[in-house]
Design a protein around this nucleic acid. Sequence first.
DNA 1: TCTGGGGTCCTTTTGCCC
DNA 2: TCTGGGGCAAAAGGACCC
Length: 447
Amino acid sequence: MSRGRVVPAGPPRGPAGDDTGCHLLHVDMDAFYASVELLRRPELRGKPMIVGGEGSRGVVLSATYEARRFGVASAMPMSRARRLCPEAVVISPTFGAYAAASAGVMEVFRSITPLVEPLSLDEAFLDVRGAARRLGGAQMIGEWIRATVQDEQGITCSVGVASTKFVAKLASAHCKPDGLLVVPADGVVQFLHPLPVAALWGVGEKTEQVLRTLGLHTVGDLATTPVQTLQRALGPAAGAHLSALAWGRDERSVTPSEPEKSIGAEETFPVDVDDPQVVRRELLRLSERTAARLRASGQVGRTIALKIRFADFTTITRSKTLRESTDVGRVVYETALALYDVLGLERARLRLVGVRVEGLADVEGQARQLLLGERETGWREAEQAVDQATLRFGAGAVRPAALFRPDETPRTDRPSGRPSQAAGSRTGTSNTRETPTVERSVGDRSR
DNA sequence: TCTGGGGTCCTTTTGCCC
DNA sequence: TCTGGGGCAAAAGGACCC
């Protein structure tokens, strides 16, 4: 996969190639999760390997190029991937390892410029306008990044260099794997117009279908279609956006950090569930998890959204905006539970449930207002105590009694004489007057 | 073929107030 | 009292991304 190369010592120096007017880089790791796994299991190098859920309902997260040759692609159902490539080794994802590798890669980027906008663990935009003058041009910087990432992290990446973000992104996709492509400012239209419409950022399966019915197959077709036609077919925003992209117009700049707008958790059941008690227990777990992440990020949210996916894959959402913001799991749970109960889905077969908190704000800014759940019930303090215990004893050490399986033996060890806490109550309870209990877990008493 | 989990953004509908 | 419409926020759904 990788070509041998000499890693230059320190940042690049010297004349640039034909990258006039180009100051945006898009760096994309090649088969990132799979590449990180290969570092941990070098004996699998050169063999087809798939990273994905081992259960019956997982999808492919990443696959080596040896597996891709069989038609395996990311987001493909694992059952299909196994059929296409039965000899592939399947590995469950280890997100901690990917996050660590990602941090190392981002560190390399930030040694070049502070203008780094991560899109995910494995890709980022860089604005090297300032650095290019010092370091000899965008193309040289791109080559240096590729060499340094491979030297330090042992994985390859592809780099697109262009005058706009989305052309840089298309360029990196175009030279994958282990490549670098410069699209000069005056060569953008020439580069774009032969590409299929689906190559554009924002054109997925549905939009591609709509465009096909209009007889539009390439970016060039899109460019020569009146913007009004596109807007009628796709809506005013999407139509105008795609029309601009088709001519290479993209004003978006590299923005290092955007605040999160929502935090949530969802889970697909291994098999469809029609028992409301199981659904309620899952909602409690997801609410606790979501609220813990809110508290860890120092944020509160006002709108609680419930997501339900039925066995036939149709999905509905229901949401409620509270009077005050919250980061209390109990409040999130009671709101989500009320939204679920009002649906009356007693025997419906559910595939997935999810809980999300939107309308986020910094908890600091809410200091003057009473946070929902803060004083009246004491849940907030109880959950903060759980956060502390989790930090000390690990995730899952402390959880609501309702989340212990009936067959599970509760932990009886009490380091430093501190009691273990079960800040919870019975499954399905929605009594807001209830106060938090500090007690030993005794299993799920709801059964 | 049979579809994860984390998100963002856009559009449409609905309800409320004036 | 009824009706219409503008403005707004919330709710809901859907497409898309990695």
